[in-house]
Amino acid sequence: MWRQIIPAFRITLVFTLLTGLIYPPLVTGLCQLFFPYQANGSLIRVHGRVVGSALIGQRFTQPGYFHPRPSAAGNGYDAAASGGSNLGPTSRNLVLRVKAAVARFRNHNPDDHGAIPADLLTASGSGLDPDISLASAYAEAPRVAKARGIALARLRQFIHAHAALPWGGFLGEPRVNVLLLNLALDAAYPVKVSR
């Protein structure tokens, strides 16, 4: 084995150079050239200020905005500390957390009476899920419609227009991107949102 150490050392240096110090910067250059928006994190600017990334969820609490899923990333939607709750199916903490979320949801959405969609009360794997299911958006719609003074039927149409549906019937789930939907709402039905 010791006789092989010298070639091992040399080839490790060569591959470190090739795959570690040439390949990533080469990819960086090509990506920045061809896909600069994506390569820099799909950032969204409003009046020149970065308000977030189209791919990364963020917290919303005001009634006039759609709300995202619960998040276990840091203190919630911490995009520098991704992660899930990692609570198992027999975890008391999980059941208590979801029970509290059910109560909160009923409190904030008195006009929705159906069973609550599973995704809306469970924490995503990344803690940064940008989407909610279409069912979840419809469940929140009465609250948002009331807060913004829009007819519910019109808001449901609006949601549908911004939804992503499974491609080819199997690729992806029916969903809406919460940040993009809220941005579109602000543009189409502006309200004075308190900061």
Binding site: S85, Y138, A164
Partner: peptide, 14 residues
């Protein structure tokens, strides 16, 4: 309209 199932720890888009 929704994936349903055990969504704890899963992403909506998947």
């Amino acid at each position: 309209l929704q994936p349903g199932g055990n969504m704890e720890g899963k992403e909506v888009r998947f």
